[in-house]
């Protein structure tokens, strides 16, 4: 689709070039303008990425120098103390844990929604439903935060207690001081927030499945579900992974909703029902205002870590997608 638009624009510019010139022209000027502007956009993107990385490193280094603890393994975050002691371990753990759980909950539901809208729902219902899912993406994250803090969190309090009472033999659900402002609550809210992006991209991917493949499966005597399994899901595999990764990217970076829901407590704990936990982004939002010189540097250093985590996640996703490339 993008390439079609590109071609359209190119001929357009070429046409303008011809109209401007007196002689017959093949429109090479238009071609060049287009090529340069496209290249320019690419370069600007790289420059922005580089500028962000340089800024983060430049501001982070002094704080990291002053740090008395090992930045990667230390769990405490006291950059404003003298001497400053802070580390990323707990924050990175909370970030990865909550995002991973969110992805785990959101992906199956999102794919289910996309499948339902694309293949099962009657057409009139399908378009309305698709619109509704997209609308979910338009809810500001502060609203999710408020809702999570004042309504959903209180409900999750009971859910947490229930899980803790009956399933505490599962390490994740063990521990005490169970409450609604836990990593689990944050994960569920994150899951709701990343649902629309995963679902709408997956739906786009399903729309790309060639009719010929679907008909081939049907003509072999496949039921609807078998057709989906045979022609749709394998074809959409890389697209679905990309969609999930975009969702994960959003979950990793989500700030304000998580900052509002979690009641900050220190220390790594795998007990996700426990009140507390923290993430990199939420920590930055909560502590930036009152941080001193070293404190800000330390927060920027944590931002750098978030940047790197996101980068690794994306590269991982690309590797997965590329592995079976010859088949799609």
């Amino acid at each position: 689709m993008t390439s079609e638009i590109d071609v359209g624009q190119r001929t357009d510019t070429a046409g303008n070039g011809r109209a401007g010139g007196r002689r017959m022209s093949t429109g090479r000027l238009g071609d060049q303008i287009f090529a340069h502007s496209a290249r320019g956009s690419g370069v600007v993107l790289l420059a922005i990425m580089a500028a962000i990385a340089v800024f983060l490193i430049w501001r982070a280094v002094p704080a990291l120098r002053a740090n008395e603890a090992n930045f990667l393994t230390e769990q405490e975050w006291n950059p404003n103390a003298t001497p400053p002691v802070f580390g990323i371990a707990q924050l990175a753990f909370g970030t990865l844990m909550s995002s991973f759980l969110a992805l785990l909950m959101a992906t199956p539901v999102a794919i289910g929604i996309a499948l339902f809208i694309s293949f099962y729902a009657p057409r009139r219902l399908a378009s309305g439903l698709g619109y509704l899912v997209d609308l979910l993406a338009a809810v500001p994250s502060i609203v999710y935060g408020l809702w999570g803090l004042h309504y959903f969190g209180t409900k999750m309090d009971d859910v947490g207690r229930f899980l803790n009472d009956y399933f505490s033999w599962i390490p994740l659900f063990g521990g005490d001081s169970v409450g609604g402002r836990s990593l689990l609550t944050a994960s569920v809210i994150l899951a709701i927030m990343i649902l629309p992006i995963i679902s709408s991209i997956t739906r786009e991917v399903f729309l790309q499945v060639p009719t010929a493949n679907v008909e081939a499966a049907l003509a072999l005597g496949a039921t609807r579900w078998e057709t989906i399994r045979m022609a749709v899901l394998p074809f959409g595999r890389s697209g679905m992974i990309s969609a999930a990764m975009l969702g994960l990217g959003r979950a990793l970076g989500e700030t304000i909703a998580v900052a509002m829901v979690l009641s900050t407590a220190s220390g790594i704990s795998i007990h996700i029902l426990k009140d507390g936990g923290n993430t990199i982004a939420a920590n930055i939002a909560n502590s930036f205002a009152e941080a001193g010189e070293t404190g800000r540097g330390a927060l920027i250093a944590s931002g750098l870590v978030l940047f790197v985590i996101t980068l690794i996640v994306n590269m991982g996703a690309r590797a997965i997608v590329a592995r079976r490339k010859e088949f799609v």
Binding site: A212, N213, E215, A217, A219, L220, G221, T223, P234, F327
Partner: peptide, 22 residues
């Protein structure tokens, strides 16, 4: 109809092997 298609096979105008399969 699924049972019908299992006994009445079809070959299409454009070759349409499943692209993700060997």
């Amino acid at each position: 109809p699924v049972a019908v298609r299992r006994v009445v096979g079809m070959v299409f105008q454009r070759p349409n092997p499943f692209p993700t399969m060997s």
